[in-house]
């Protein structure tokens, strides 16, 4: 195991668990309808504290590419990712479309168009990652030559402005829907800041981590301050969307990302469970939302508190996706659904 990548693997696994936990909370809230602004507001605080997970997952992708291919990507880079990332996205998307098709072909085709092509489902992050691949190929050389500060500042202004106007202006949302055919959450401008920052972190990985290990209070303070600011907006009911692409999430997610890398680097002994989980993370991201609503109904029969519901549902969600992946990995045909899972390749050897 590459020591340098240990913390990234751990963080990917933790981000994956965080995503399943957040969606378990959503299912709990939909079932029990707790008072999220009154006596049960700790749920809201907890839920928003985990929203960094998807931006972190997306940043990890770009950090690894930027770190592993500092002077441009290899031949066949995109093709490999189409095979291992885009094909599972399409197949799981078709499966979700079928689940929501009410057994009718016309509805199935309609859903497939919305989900697979337009990205209108929780797998939308794959379209974001693919835009990152293309941005990396197009802008990599330019960003490499440039001083990091101007691109980081410009991308922050662009992402923040886009997300801010999008959140507050209905006419703008209608305009975006008219000019951008895909789901508006997939548009790269909203994620551009993460891309640029992750690019530079990947290029200067060691230097960045050494700097923030020495000055760990910087991401700690920015994480706390940005979280408090975000929660103020939520609890004042100014901006109540429970989603990761919020304008007040940009600094929070980045701070948690850096802080987590610094802290996880201090763990000397690799945690094999988390590393294995990290290998399954992509498939878990893609599939857990397909089963969670059903598993939530099952969890209701054994859990009677918020914490027991969320813990049991998270465990069931993770276990179901992992079990599903292990079975699918057995055949060459069904392997297309999972993409490459390193832990299972190692198991087969």
């Amino acid at each position: 195991m590459n020591r340098q990548l240990n913390e990234i693997n751990l963080l990917r696994a933790i981000a994956c668990i965080a995503v399943v936990v957040t969606h378990s909370i959503t299912n709990y809230a939909k079932t029990y309808e707790p008072a999220l602004f009154d006596q049960d507001k700790f749920i809201t605080y907890f839920r928003f504290a985990l929203l960094w997970a998807t931006p972190v997952f997306v940043m990890i992708s770009e950090v690894l590419i930027s770190k592993n291919y500092p002077n441009g990507v290899r031949k066949g880079f995109l093709l490999k990712r189409v095979k291992y990332i885009l094909v599972p996205y399409i197949l799981i998307g078709l499966l979700k479309s079928y689940m929501h098709s009410e057994g009718q072909w016309s509805v199935f085709f309609q859903r497939s168009w919305e989900i697979v092509v337009l990205g209108h489902w929780h797998g939308f992050f794959v379209l974001v990652i693919f835009q990152f691949y293309i941005l990396h190929i197009l802008l990599g050389r330019f960003l490499q030559k440039s001083h990091p500060l101007p691109p980081i500042l410009i991308s922050f202004v662009l992402s923040f402005t886009y997300l801010y106007i999008h959140a507050g202006n209905k006419e703008y949302r209608v305009f975006i829907e008219q000019v951008y055919p895909f789901w508006d959450r997939t548009i790269f401008i909203g994620w551009l800041f993460y891309f640029v920052v992750a690019f530079y972190i990947g290029q200067n990985y060691e230097r960045v981590l050494i700097f923030f290990t020495k000055h760990f209070y910087i991401p700690l303070i920015t994480a706390v301050v940005s979280y408090v600011m975000m929660m103020n907006r939520v609890m004042d009911r100014v901006f109540v969307s429970v989603k990761s692409d919020r304008y007040d999430m940009l600094i929070f997610a980045l701070s948690v990302f850096i802080l987590a890398l610094v802290l996880l680097r201090m763990i000397k002994k690799p945690n094999h469970t988390l590393i294995k989980l990290s290998h399954f993370s992509f498939f878990i991201y893609l599939t857990h939302q397909l089963t969670l609503p059903y598993l939530s109904n099952l969890t209701q029969t054994v859990a009677n508190t918020f914490w027991s519901h969320v813990v049991i549902l998270t465990f069931l969600g993770l276990a179901t996706s992992i079990g599903w992946a292990m079975l699918f990995y057995e055949s060459r045909l069904t392997k297309l659904f999972t993409g490459r899972i390193k832990a299972l390749d190692q198991l087969a050897r």
């Binding site: 939909k30 009911r237 109540v240």
Partner: peptide
Amino acid sequence: PPPELVWEDEV
């Protein structure tokens, strides 16, 4: 009525 949380992950 005051706005409630909008769960945008359920799509």
